[in-house]
Simulated scan of single mutants.
Amino acid sequence: MNLQHADVRRILELLDTAEHLDSLDLRIGDVVLQARKPGAAPMSALPVEALAPTTATAAPAPSVTPEPAPTAAPVTVRSPALSEVPDRMIAIRAPMPGTFFRTPAPTQPPFVEEGQQIEASATLCLIEVMKMFNSVGAPAAGRVHSILVEHGQAVEHEQILMIVDPTEAEAAA
């Protein structure tokens, strides 16, 4: 049995609408699908590559080159090493590989700017994978210390996207 794009979309729609289901691990033949809702507990510690047979082949996904939003403020790209995240600050990481978007749409302003106060669970950005947009939320209230990725840039799983200073929220309270 082959898993088609329409099948994947339907499975993801079911996950999205299911009230008591936060994540899904599915294997059909050589295809492995792992999906989770934002805020759900992390999935298995095994990467997808470890679950899938080495002989599996998949058709390459079509390449989509997003246009940067004209209203998005330019941000200098900085890639600090893990040890460079300042003490007591929170690294916001990409939950999956994809394309990073600062805005909800090309003509709309960015979700957040550097220096902006944020609330816990506030949407910080979007990660687009196969034309599905996944929001990345703030794990805690605080202040956006820095944005490390440019709008429209490809990101890797666990790449640091932003750094949030939660002590700024405590000081404001």
Rank of each mutant, 00 (worst) to 15 (best):
E67L: 15
T99V: 14
V64C: 11
L124R: 04
A91T: 04
I118V: 15
A105T: 12
L15K: 06
L14S: 09
H151G: 11
S63K: 00
I11V: 15
V48K: 01
T54L: 14
K37N: 00
E168H: 10
M162Q: 03
E158H: 07
S23D: 11
V112K: 05
E119M: 05
L21R: 02
T55H: 11
A122E: 14
V32C: 15
I11G: 05
Q159V: 02
E150M: 01
L26W: 05
T54I: 11
A172F: 13
L124S: 07
S23K: 01
A94W: 05
L161Y: 04
T167N: 13
L3A: 07
M96Q: 09
P60S: 11
R143Y: 00
T55G: 13
D7G: 10
A41P: 00
P70E: 00
F111I: 05
V77K: 11
A59F: 02
A45P: 00
D25E: 13
V155R: 08
V112H: 02
P166G: 12
I147L: 12
E119Q: 06
E114Q: 15
L21Y: 02
A120P: 01
L126V: 09
P68Q: 03
L82T: 13
S83N: 08
T71A: 11
E84F: 08
P109I: 04
D16F: 02
R9P: 00
I28S: 07
L26C: 08
A94D: 06
E168F: 07
L148R: 01
D30N: 13
P110A: 12
A140C: 10
P70Q: 01
L148N: 11
S121I: 13
M132G: 05
R10E: 15
L161S: 01
A141S: 15
L14F: 06
T54G: 15
L124W: 10
I163K: 09
E113H: 10
E113W: 04
E113K: 11
P106T: 06
